[in-house]
Simulated scan of single mutants.
Amino acid sequence: MLLLRRNSARELERATLAIDGDPSVNAHESVSAVETYARELGLQVFGQKGDELEAEIRPKYTKRVESFIDEIGFMGAYNIYSGVAHAELGGCGGS
């Protein structure tokens, strides 16, 4: 959960900077706030640019979606939908 929270905080910081927003608005869920919380719990320092904690590595988005879809019983659905989406984005829709 902390790996996902840290990643979300990083993305929130990036989005805030992209729109020239006030970064202090995000102080309660900033990267440093998540890292401080992890230290308070007595956990190791985040590794791999924030993608590793206590020998756990944050799975990438595709892997998380595939696992979720497989867990609810739609084996391979992500690959089917992803393939169609990539084909459309690549202009291979044909008509």
Rank of each mutant, 00 (worst) to 15 (best):
G91N: 04
S24R: 14
Q48S: 15
V31S: 13
D22E: 06
S95Q: 12
L53Q: 10
F68D: 10
C92R: 14
S67P: 01
A55S: 13
G42E: 08
Y37G: 00
E66Q: 15
F68S: 15
M1G: 04
V25R: 11
G94I: 01
L2Y: 09
A38M: 04
G76Q: 11
I72L: 03
F46Y: 08
G21K: 07
E13R: 01
F68Q: 11
L12N: 02
R6V: 01
I80S: 10
S8G: 01
L17T: 04
N7V: 00
H28G: 06
L17D: 08
D51F: 09
L43D: 05
D51G: 03
T16H: 14
S32E: 14
L53R: 07
E56T: 07
E71T: 10
F46E: 02
L53K: 09
A87I: 12
S24H: 13
H86M: 06
T16Q: 15
S32G: 06
L43A: 12
F46M: 04
E11L: 01
L41Y: 08
R58S: 02
Q44D: 14
S82T: 06
R10S: 07
A27E: 09
Y37P: 00
I69G: 03
A9P: 01
V84T: 06
E71A: 15
G73P: 05
V84G: 02
G83F: 11
N7S: 08
R6T: 00
L43N: 07
G42V: 09
E66S: 14
G90Q: 12
I80P: 04
G76V: 09
E40T: 13
G90F: 05
V45P: 01
V31F: 11
N26T: 06
A18Q: 14
S67H: 09
I80D: 11
G91W: 05
G93T: 10
G73K: 08
E88F: 13
S67W: 07
F74N: 13
R39N: 09
A9H: 00
F74K: 13
G76I: 09
G76R: 10
A9Q: 00
G91Q: 04
